[in-house]
Design a protein around this nucleic acid. Sequence first.
DNA 1: GATGAATGAGCGTTCATTCAT
DNA 2: GATGAATGAACGCTCATTCAT
Lengths: 222, 222, 222, 222
Amino acid sequence: MPKTTFQNLSPEKRERITAAAIAEFSSVPYGKATLDRIVDAAGVSKGSMYQYFAGKADLYRWLLTEHLPARKMAAIGALAPAPGANVWAVLEQAFLAGVRFAAAEPSLTRLGLRFRRDHEIEPELAAIRRGHRAASDAWLQALLNEGKERGELRGDLDVSMASGFLAHALGEGMLDQLARRVGLDLDGFFERPDATASLADEDILDLVRGVTRLFREGAGAR
Amino acid sequence: MPKTTFQNLSPEKRERITAAAIAEFSSVPYGKATLDRIVDAAGVSKGSMYQYFAGKADLYRWLLTEHLPARKMAAIGALAPAPGANVWAVLEQAFLAGVRFAAAEPSLTRLGLRFRRDHEIEPELAAIRRGHRAASDAWLQALLNEGKERGELRGDLDVSMASGFLAHALGEGMLDQLARRVGLDLDGFFERPDATASLADEDILDLVRGVTRLFREGAGAR
Amino acid sequence: MPKTTFQNLSPEKRERITAAAIAEFSSVPYGKATLDRIVDAAGVSKGSMYQYFAGKADLYRWLLTEHLPARKMAAIGALAPAPGANVWAVLEQAFLAGVRFAAAEPSLTRLGLRFRRDHEIEPELAAIRRGHRAASDAWLQALLNEGKERGELRGDLDVSMASGFLAHALGEGMLDQLARRVGLDLDGFFERPDATASLADEDILDLVRGVTRLFREGAGAR
Amino acid sequence: MPKTTFQNLSPEKRERITAAAIAEFSSVPYGKATLDRIVDAAGVSKGSMYQYFAGKADLYRWLLTEHLPARKMAAIGALAPAPGANVWAVLEQAFLAGVRFAAAEPSLTRLGLRFRRDHEIEPELAAIRRGHRAASDAWLQALLNEGKERGELRGDLDVSMASGFLAHALGEGMLDQLARRVGLDLDGFFERPDATASLADEDILDLVRGVTRLFREGAGAR
DNA sequence: GATGAATGAGCGTTCATTCAT
DNA sequence: GATGAATGAACGCTCATTCAT
């Protein structure tokens, strides 16, 4: 976590550093990211960086556990399931929020996606990721259990199983669909994260509804 | 691809090298994997390694395009969709084959999964990955289109969308479910790949059927 | 070209590095020169060297395109052909300047000569060499053409041909003659570059006049 | 020098090895030449090569001290100055022989030229080169001294000096002129040694006479 | 005599981190 | 508090030479 020296920085400088770090960590995987490029882009000295953060991992950790969640919250609000709301309406809203965030903040989206999939993360960072996943899973399972009680879901649905697939869908699954719509795959999204910005709003709604329906009704004929 | 020198090696030595390389490339992402660790584990000199393979990328490529497919084929046979077979039966077989391979060959499974998700792969290797994905996607879309014609799937199903989610399910989605059944997540599977070996065959069948049903009928109440 | 880090170094340290690099690159051809030896001799760490220069080629390039010309200029001044001066006087001055520089700065001379003849230089460096040669050739041909117009040279002289031999004479040809005067050949000069320092000024003048006369009058009897 | 095993080889195999070695050593400088490429091209095993020659240096030495002189002799005969012949006629013949050998055997020419200029030669090989040079110098000085006695040369000619420039002219000087005639420089000759083969015989004669005349009459106006 | 697998020292280069100023 | 020079371990890769078969 950042040292107090970082908090004392002028907002402008703090922002420069944050932006440079996001640009770097979202462009290349953690292991290939270098502090050199970050300090160059931020216009601060390398020594200073170590006055602000304990090191590369600390900077990355702060970005993912503090900065990104705060920005996400600011952009799309908390994902608290409105009590009593229909499961499928909540999920559709969640899908929509995710897609809109991806269009509005491609770099942050890419940063988060990288983190979720990165294989070379240090043990301490892996614990953070586990926390993220557990929270997302808990939210989903609570939602699904409520839905089950209200009869909106099959009574014999395996909630743990469904939450796994939904967690994927809410993250890279949806991004993959988004990329497909513009003729790319997820690798392509990493290279050109703003390629999906060109999608019309109705395309996005169409996509979100289609995905929701796949999970609701399945692919089989009735 | 390996040089003839490698083919001429004693099977015992070849196996030592292969096992060391799989262990390394399945433990850390490509960019962090080192030949030093591989040759140490295999008990050969660094120079020798270059008599067998043109370099690190060549070794990795061989593992992924030759060795892994061969072992997979040996373990589960070809995935040729029996013509005219029911879509859902074919998918169930495919799920089952994937899970069984994961239980039988956890290291190879981990290797393949890492490859599918690795962020710091070289351009040439990325092309191979694109090929894999395109082939998998084509297989799935063909399968789904047939199913649609035979009335086994909803007539208005978005085949491209469904194939995206199924591709995930056939790979890490299913592995994630497998891990969940033993109280882990995917990260946990990477750390203890053989933890899933304890699963009983009926548990596996139950899982496969559950997943198939989720995709067939959805999670919504009828 | 050196990074600013190198410019900011203490002159003493900069000189140590420069001297070590000159010693190395003038002792062995580019391909055999090693940074290990240079940093050892200079007493800096290998990592530091990469703070000063982008790499081996960069260091070499700086030596040849910046440092050596600067030192040469400092030692013998620019070779601007005084307009209207007699061809033979200009050439004699050029010969003299070359020989005096060789006596004053044997290591640098050896460095430049190696560069002119090195067979295993990289493409980028080869382009620099082509530039050097083209400039030298242009200077000589302009000089000879002027001389022809003023009637100082034979009217039927093949200027291109003559410039080729003069270019050689101005470089290693003259050094070879210098070495001969102290009983060595060019190889010997490479091994003991300061052996020619013992030559008296009148010996040098005598040599320069002899060479000029050979090119002016030829070796044949009149 | 080759071991007896090399002499016992079938002429065909010996020739394959020789040709491969010439191709390699004439294509890249000694330090960049590799035995791997030579044995590959020759179709022999690496171990065998060490049964024929003591190592890389030994093979190179044999090529330069035995094979190349023999082939040169076969191609252009001995350079014994026909007693009593005019100096300038002899020199012209020598120039012509050199140019014709370059056209007939570009690889061998390039090999020899590389050797004369290579900077990274081992001490033992340097001794061989000194021998070559001393022999050439002795031949030239004898020729010039005779010419002086017969009054074909200026009485006050510095024979040692003139022999230095003539030695250069007979070797790379002439090749440089040859390359100029086809729009290249010596570097270009190394890349495309047969580029000069296109020169017409009268061009070659013209060149040889021009060079001879430059050394005989000089470049100055009378 | 022929083979070709094995070796290991050495190369240029990278980069997170330290620390004197 | 800010700086940026210094470091050194580690990396992928090359190749002449050795030596068991």
